[in-house]
Design a protein around this nucleic acid. Structure first.
Lengths: 347, 347
DNA sequence: TTGTAAGCGTTATCAA
DNA sequence: TTGATAACGCTTACAA
């Protein structure tokens, strides 16, 4: 492995000079600069990562902690972050807490469990001297990731940071729920059921809020019987669809595509024609939504955009050094209505 | 950040002694060992990653290069690798080449393109002194990842290494195709069509081989007209299904679930009843296979197993230092038949 | 059994 | 404008 020392010898200058040139220090003659740069290029010299990390405090590396890489929303977000970082000449290091793998569904509100893995992960990242950290959650909630006295920039992605010191990037659930409901209404529906997620979940609450605002704006009474809570899983979609059919709704807004698929199951079983006898909407634009029949009208959560925005925030803070305070606390990335064939226009 | 020096001072010993204890060197009195270990634990001391990396050649870090993190098979493999590494006290560093993101489908056989990203990635990993490298491909083919004179262990995952120096872990496509065909035959089918992947693809070739072996074993003539090539995409499933229906097959084996979904599209359009009038099988156990109706009988590629086996091989080689030669060249992880409702038993 | 000191490849400080 | 030299935190001969 070639070192500064050898470069210096090759150029007949001191290692200091080489180092100065490499680090864009001012006081170097143009002549030697050219020569050294030339040799560096020819030899393919790259400064030793460890030696550099030991001296500087910066490594131009960003740490990414993900709750679980197997959550469908995570890889696209991570990929977008990596793309942006690569463009801006930052390394990334990914740490996968594998929360699902370890505890299935039991870690959501278990601060104990979360922190038993998060703390070491952060320590790990700190020990490899990352310049900044991104926390990628699997679903939206208020999460307490970083201590107050954290000394590197951090951003919380797909969840809200409890500590307002760190910006959060989330999807605009309220707008999503609102847009979908507005669309449903525009298609002539007035009796719109909802199969929501778990009751205390933030996605649920905000999408619900959007739903209600849309109803209000259109002067449609909100019937509490039309609002049913599921648990994001297929079975709950099936179950709640049964209730809603009894209520006589003409359309149902499912707060994720998985539950919508459960609703499909029930309707299919009953011989009720989706997109004809009843209209259905999902959320997430999960891959499955384009495969079930009729194709599900849904709302795309723009994972790429989320990743991009998050990376942008962190990288900018890092580049601008002390230009903080310029960032909002919460960024809401808008969702995108995806119209397919599960909603019929009625009178 | 606490250092050896401080630990030494706290214990009233020299830094050498502390270092020796931390590195399990023999010549240390039990007494001092205990004392030092105690202090280390209390202070939460962790050796500085950079200083250590600079001195030793080993970092207990494994580099993972993935072709694209957004390929559906990649995250589960990576997660399994990470789990195993974590268990065995290895760090992992993930490098995402984002090949799809950069070039969509045009990089498969473009060695130029691949290497223009692979080389820097490997250099990067080498520069952070990883102890070993895993290459995670997005689909099976013969791939030329590592030079002959690579001086760290490496394994190729989900593809075959051109260079037999490096073990490969792949799925057993032949067995998968064989098992599925056998199953179809056991359900009474003799006219079994195939919607294969691209003609020169290794998955295609091996699954096809399995198909033909099963036919041969059962004394069923292979009708070349029954074998149609698609391109793994939905539309090609639709297209080829049309041809096969004309051929009068009673069952069709699609080499992935996506093409099967395209076949569903056609059959649905024609009012042909899947699982009744005609039987369909897929491959991959893609998420969608449990959502389309009727649920698709398919073959699960055991991604977790693949990751596990790969990690096992690499970690073992690393732990055992010079115990090489003990590993096979190619590991084939068996696939697992997943029976659902798209295949009917006939006379 | 323990300690001293050299050295890993950088960058930073200061002197020339 | 350039160059010695110290320092970063650790491991490891070698000496005590």
């Amino acid at each position: 492995m070639i070192t500064v020392k050898e470069i210096a010898q090759l150029c007949g200058v001191s290692i200091t000079t080489v180092s100065n040139i490499l680090n864009n220090k001012p006081k170097v003659s143009e002549e030697t600069r050219q020569k050294v740069l030339e040799v560096v290029k020819q030899t393919g010299y790259k400064p030793n990562y460890f030696a550099q990390g030991m001296r500087k405090q910066k490594t131009r590396t960003i740490g990414i902690v993900v709750e679980d890489l197997n959550i469908f929303s995570t890889p696209p977000i991570v990929e977008a972050i990596m793309a942006y970082c690569e463009e801006h000449n930052f390394r990334t290091v990914l740490l996968n807490m594998r929360l699902y793998d370890k505890w299935q569904d039991t870690w959501y509100d278990d601060t104990q469990k979360l922190h038993s893995v998060l703390e070491p992960s952060i320590q790990e990242l700190l020990s490899i001297k990352v310049d900044g950290i991104m926390y990628i959650a699997g679903h939206c909630r208020i999460v307490d990731c970083f201590p107050d006295d954290f000394d590197i920039p951090a951003v919380v992605v797909y969840a809200l940071s409890k500590n307002s010191l760190y910006p959060s990037v989330v999807i605009d659930d309220e707008k999503g729920g609102y847009d979908m409901t507005k669309y449903l209404i525009s298609m002539g529906h007035k009796k719109i059921g909802v199969i929501a997620g778990t009751i205390d979940n933030l996605h649920t609450r905000n999408r619900n809020l959007g739903y209600q605002k849309a109803l209000f704006e259109e002067g449609i009474l909100f019937n509490p019987d039309y609002l049913r809570y599921g648990d994001w899983m297929r079975e709950s979609g099936y179950r709640e669809m049964r209730s809603l059919v009894k209520q006589g709704v003409t359309a149902v807004f499912c707060m994720n595509d998985i539950m919508a698929s459960g609703a499909y199951d029930y309707l299919y079983e009953q011989g009720i024609n989706i997109g004809q006898d009843i209209s259905l909407a999902g959320f997430d634009n999960n891959e499955l939504s384009q495969y079930i029949r009729p194709n599900l009208t849904t709302c795309d959560i723009q994972l790429k955009e989320i990743g991009l925005k998050s990376a942008e925030i962190l990288v900018d803070t890092l580049e601008k050094e002390e230009a903080d305070g310029s960032y909002e606390e919460i960024y809401r990335i808008p969702c995108q209505l995806v119209v397919r064939n599960s909603i019929r226009k009625i009178e």
